[in-house]
Design a protein around this nucleic acid. Structure first.
Lengths: 352, 352
DNA sequence: ATGAAAGCGCTAACAC
DNA sequence: GTGTTAGCGCTTTCAT
């Protein structure tokens, strides 16, 4: 049984009491800043590490975490949600309580309104699915209140959030480029559909794709990109339009979730099982399409994992002062096809 | 703060002391079997759940876990190892101590000898990378001693192990079939190289592949399979031989790790970047080959994850009596290509 | 075979 | 501002 330094030992060394050491270590009020500094210094010298187990056992009032996200597309956020719940369940015994708020969409207006309605001071930490720079100020305000903020799923890089957990859209795009390049036998014509007006991540997914096709697959031609607003209907029409205009298209790349569904519908209508179609996300329609062969593969950025670790990392930060080595914790992009579909369920069930 | 049932409450209800309740709950000696039954019954009725936090804090002697595996191919087991270490690190504070033993190869002779040399009774649980049915008897013996056993990486399904964590080789084969089918544009000739004399899992990886190609890709021809003993040199020669004999082969599927490396060497020698090559595992040579384009993709069954969760689940079993809903905990098969290579590192670094 | 009691390392309330 | 103390829910030892 390994022995750690305890607050009692620090107290003895500092000729003070555990109460004061506790005040210093947890920056509670009612302590001389000199004594505090001295204690902190000594604690560091002694290699003190907080013992979350003892904390959990003695804690009377729970640590309250607030999670702010949205529910715009159910399939994705349903998994995020399950990850959050599982983490919350595991943390209950540590005296950690998780409160969730969802906006209807990932819009900054809604998010701002929501955040303003929250009594920030009754929470000890926040995990936020940033809705864009417009909410940066309030995120910083929260941090200034002494409440740590972590972003997940979408980042707010210009804020004082202590870390971000989520996908790297550019890299997902790179992978899409490689996958499609290889599926096409390294030659032919490919069309990309995406929303270039919408979220930054869609654009990144495109840029990453473009980069790789351009650099590594010289025999592949990329058609002019189509705007489809990450909207099922537009994507459907746009797909039909593109395929009609350019008859020899061999592959389609769709950068958004809803767009993927629309493209699938179009492909299905045309009966083009020969089309190589790579899109994003596991949703009811994409699952169906993968099973039936209307979709070649989708890229998937484990929402369960994102939700789960957003909460876990935030809790670890509160409980043990954990700070990841890199503020950017990147979630894997998975290539999902028919025969690894069940895996999404696997992960969610692993420890429950 | 949620309140749980405590042993003190159980004691009161049973008109006994916490000492006796503790004896009953942890089947310690020195208790009347009648009182024990009564207490256990009452505890269940009251919905008692053990509090691992309190246990961890009060525990004087640590819970000792023994992990038995091998180091035959470094690249793979290095990650298994890191997973084990990370889990061990996280569990230290719970008073859990992890001891590891590795055999040179995954041979039942070595494993048997190793297991026989261990003083089983000084451990509270084992995680074992089964080396085959020949060690089933001793695994059962351990369980009969009252020491729980979990298998990982390779299962021992006929034993009393309480669960298995590892890959589903058949399903990995299915995925390989789908991937290769799609990469080939659903037609052409493919050759499979594997070791049909070696481990069961290689055969399963082949069967799964065969199944899918047969059923879903009628225009793909599968060449007679080549035996390559999962040995780099044989695979190299076999690849050259096959490609010479059958000139129109478009894709190669290799069921083993070492075999993949051999096939890559052959392909490289022939300068056949056009060849579609799908094999197994992330190793120095496969990383290199993916980067340079000599290998299309490899399938990868997250060894870090396997090692990490083998230890975590075993500990959870000891600490909280956790038993997974299914005794088979299946690890995802990942499709790795050039642009998601770094992910192997990501996962390992996530919480450290 | 059973009970009583002393911790484990903290938190939080209270006293000074 | 600082010290003291009573737990948190177990494990373990010692006494009965």
């Amino acid at each position: 049984m390994k022995k750690r330094v305890t607050i009692a030992e620090i107290a003895k060394r500092c000729n003070t009491s555990i109460g004061t050491v506790d005040r210093a270590l947890n920056n509670r009020s009612g302590i001389h800043s000199e004594t505090k500094d001295f204690i902190l210094q000594t604690a560091k010298e002694m290699g003190y590490q907080t013992n979350p187990i003892a904390g959990a056992l003695s804690r009377k009032k729970s640590i309250r975490l607030g999670i702010v996200y949205c529910e715009n597309h159910a399939d994705f956020y349903d998994y995020v949600n399950r990850g959050i719940e599982q983490a919350a369940k595991e943390l209950l015994i540590y005296g950690v309580e998780v409160t969730k708020w969802k906006t209807k969409n990932l819009s900054w207006e809604e998010q701002l309104e929501l955040l303003e309605s929250i009594d920030l001071n009754s929470y000890d930490g926040f995990a936020i699915n940033s809705a864009g720079m417009q909410t940066d100020a309030i995120l910083n305000h929260i941090v200034d209140l002494g409440i740590p903020v972590l972003t997940f799923n979408t980042d707010a890089p210009a804020t004082k959030r202590f870390c971000y957990i989520g996908a790297n859209a550019r890299q997902a795009g790179n992978l899409a480029g490689e996958l499609i390049g290889k599926l096409m036998g390294q030659e032919g014509k490919v069309a990309a559909l995406g929303s270039f007006l919408a979220t930054n991540s869609f654009i990144e997914r495109f840029i990453g794709f473009y980069e790789v096709i351009q650099r590594e697959y010289p025999k592949i031609t990329l058609c002019p990109f189509s705007e489809c607003f990450n909207d099922t209907k537009s994507a459907y029409h746009e797909t039909l339009r593109v395929l009609e205009k350019e008859s020899d298209i061999k592959a389609l790349y769709i950068t958004g979730s809803a767009g993927t569904v629309g493209a699938i519908e179009a492909i299905k209508e045309l009966g083009r099982k020969d089309m190589i179609l790579v899109g994003y996300d596991i949703t009811e329609p994409t699952i169906q399409a993968l099973k039936e062969g209307w979709c070649t593969a989708v890229l998937y950025q484990d929402p369960y994992f994102q939700g789960y670790h957003a909460v876990k990392v935030l809790a670890k930060h509160m409980l043990e002062g954990f700070v990841p080595r890199s503020p950017l914790l990147t979630v894997d992009t998975k290539i999902m096809m028919k025969y690894n579909l069940e895996e999404c369920e696997n992960t969610a069930l692993f420890l429950s």
